[in-house]
Amino acid sequence: MSVLKGKQKINGNDLYYEHYLHETSSKTILLIHGFLSSTFSFRRLIPLLCQEYNVISIDFPPFGKSGKSTRYVYSYNNIAKSILSLLEQLHIREFVVIGHSMGGQLSLNIAYLRPDLVKKVVLLCSSGYLERSKQSLIYLSYLPFFHLFIKRYLEKSGVMKNLQNVVFNQQLIDEEMFQGYMEPFLNEEIFKGLARLLRHREGDLSEEMLHKIETPCLLIWGEEDKVVPLSIGKRLQKDLKNSRLIVLSETGHLVPEERPKEVFQHIVSFLQETEVHVEA
């Protein structure tokens, strides 16, 4: 297995990616992390996926090692199109997309935009049904120093408290995990990007739009998810016509960290079952 790491300038912003090339597999999996995260959140899942597939893990702007341009439009639609442009530059013609949390909503946007390219979707505790920010907050985002208010707000909760909120088994939290999730905050420019994300982010896909997605979807949820409760997963499962839901007990929101082996097994089974069904 060889690994390519780099950045591509897409729509005026740098998009960081890691491309793990399998020696024989022709199938590609795209990984999209969640809010305030990066490719780091898939660190336990990537080695397992690489055994079977080509894997592309991206940091979507303004997170991780991707750009934080103050001219970029941080809407779901534009981020999704930027990711699709990156895959086109990498000559990826079809793929499976796996999205965690906010990355799940981006995955659904990508499947909605390009159903011809997306063969399957795996949603890991995906966000759903969130409305756009209130107009008053959008107006505030234009203030010159608004990004400092975002920084102060996030610093109040802190990385450790956030980790404790997203992980069911607190013993999993160690120094490596803490530092990995702290890293996105070390670049001050991220807070300017977050201000624009708050301003540009549309609401999540509506029920009507979800009903139009025919791509097979597997939903994997932590029963103890405090960030995106299981009720959202059940609702998404009803609105996505070709989907099924798997619930992991004693598991929180950060399923790629907490249950990588179980998640991997469910993904492989899902892809194999779908392929057999299509051939039949």
Rank of each mutant, 00 (worst) to 15 (best):
C50T: 15
L106S: 10
K192H: 10
I92F: 01
S38W: 03
V227D: 05
F40H: 00
E52W: 03
I110A: 01
S107D: 08
R259D: 05
V121F: 06
I138Y: 02
V268P: 06
I267T: 07
E155R: 12
D204N: 14
G34V: 06
S2K: 08
L137W: 00
E18S: 10
P115V: 10
L117S: 06
R199M: 08
D225K: 13
G12K: 07
F264K: 09
K119P: 01
V247D: 13
K68Q: 11
R199W: 01
F168W: 15
S249C: 05
S231C: 06
G103Y: 07
S126C: 05
N13H: 09
Q135C: 11
Y112N: 11
L186V: 01
E52H: 14
Y20N: 10
G64Y: 00
Y16S: 07
F63Q: 11
Q237C: 15
I92H: 01
R259K: 14
I138Q: 05
G193T: 04
F149E: 02
Y20R: 03
G252K: 00
E208G: 03
K9L: 14
L245S: 03
L45M: 03
G103D: 07
Y16T: 04
F145C: 02
T251H: 04
L194R: 03
L4E: 04
T215Q: 08
F95N: 04
L172I: 08
R71G: 05
Q135I: 12
F95K: 05
N13Y: 12
T274P: 05
G158P: 09
S133T: 03
S66G: 06
L219Y: 12
Y20Q: 07
Q171T: 13
H211S: 15
Y129A: 09
K134M: 09
L230T: 11
K120S: 09
V159T: 13
S107P: 02
L137P: 00
S26H: 10
E189D: 15
L48M: 09
V118E: 03
H19K: 15
K156G: 01
I220P: 07
I220N: 11
K119I: 00
E94Q: 12
V97S: 07
D59P: 03
L148S: 02
Q171V: 06
I246A: 00
R235V: 07
F178Q: 14
N165F: 15
S82Y: 11
A280P: 04
L87A: 02
Y16D: 01
N78P: 02
Y20V: 02
V276S: 14
E94N: 14
L21Y: 01
S127C: 12
E175A: 09
L148D: 02
G6D: 08
F145N: 09
L240W: 00
V159S: 06
E273A: 08
I220A: 12
P256R: 12
S243I: 11
K119M: 00
G233C: 14
L123E: 13
H100V: 05
N169H: 09
Y153F: 10
S57P: 01
A111D: 13
F191R: 01
G104I: 02
Q51C: 12
G158Q: 06
I46Y: 08
V121D: 13
L198A: 04
R201S: 13
